[in-house]
């Protein structure tokens, strides 16, 4: 079963004016249920425009968006239902916090879903726990928390709505290494425990390969490739050509390959680079 499907999806800004720009250009992609997809592309590549189509925030110029088998703009679909099915968390989501307490902020979404008070309470506590927000933090003002904590409260607010598909736009941007790892690890745990389909936009290939199963690369509004993490680095050179970074360890493996030491095209973690190097060094000693 597919969670997300786009068919010839195209979006143009300012149609009919001299400023007409094609932000998303004929994108065809199919994402299976339960997948964890990393979306990467340089600034202006169309990745944010693409994800805003997936819960109907933007309406395409042409093509179709199909969520859980339903064309979201067909007459028999209520777009409000789609927005509950597909949760979208924007960049710097902590800027959207507004309530007096952490609890009230997380409860805002589920309260608007006609749920019983008991169900709202249950969801708030579960969502908070899943993002590592402790009970004593729930009665504090969200504005007294650290940047990483605020970010996790904002995420919990969307998770409490229990969307089937969760889309996150740069959830780790601007955080320090500890804040970044905590947010991403909580998202990864949530993915494993809930089976939710996750689409995560990031500039950091290192973060994507650590947590995602597949990588979707956008370039100039077009889908450049959609590959498993193991396969994507066979295109390392092309990926660098379109202005994206590959992990430092991948760059090292490319340099070594040019000098005759081939560790394979799927080097993106230190662990794997170390294993392959040790195998080759030992193999050489036995010769």
């Amino acid at each position: 079963m597919n969670a997300v499907e786009t068919k010839n999806l195209t979006y143009k800004y300012s149609v009919g004016t001299p400023f007409e720009t094609t932000a998303v250009d004929d994108v065809n992609v199919t994402i299976e249920k339960g997948e964890f997809v990393g979306i990467i592309g340089h600034t202006g590549s169309g990745k944010s425009t693409l994800i805003q189509h997936l819960n109907g925030l933007l309406k395409q110029t042409s093509g179709d968006v199909i969520i859980n088998g339903r064309n979201i703009w067909s007459k028999d679909v209520n777009i409000r239902d789609i927005r509950f099915e597909v949760g979208l968390v924007f960049q710097y989501s902590e800027h959207q916090l507004f309530e007096e307490t952490v609890y009230k902020d997380i409860a805002f979404g589920p309260k608007n879903m006609d749920l019983s008070p008991e169900e709202v309470d249950k969801r708030v506590r579960e969502a908070a726990a899943s993002m590592g927000i402790t009970d004593d933090m729930l009665e504090r003002s969200p504005f007294d928390l650290s940047g990483g904590q605020k970010r996790r409260v904002a995420l919990a607010g969307v998770i409490a709505m229990e969307p089937q598909i969760l889309i996150l736009d740069e959830p780790a941007a601007g955080l320090d290494p500890i804040g970044r790892d905590t947010v991403l690890e909580k998202i990864s745990e949530y993915h494993k425990n809930s089976g939710t389909t996750i689409l995560l936009v990031s500039h950091s290939m290192e973060d994507i390969v650590k947590y995602a199963g597949k990588v979707l690369v956008m370039n100039r509004g077009r889908l450049f490739c959609y590959e498993s993490v193991d396969n994507v680095f066979s295109k390392s050179k092309e990926i660098q050509m379109i202005g994206l970074d590959v992990p430092q360890i991948t760059r090292l493996s490319l340099m070594l390959k040019e000098h005759g030491v081939d560790l394979g095209d799927d080097i993106y973690t230190i662990e794997r680079a170390k294993q392959r190097l040790i195998e080759q060094i030992k193999g050489k000693q036995e010769c």
Partner: peptide, 20 residues
Amino acid sequence: VGLDVPQVTELCYELRKEGI
């Protein structure tokens, strides 16, 4: 203290642990 090192530095550190 919650900081990283560059990936190549960590690779060398790991290789040294294996006696390389």
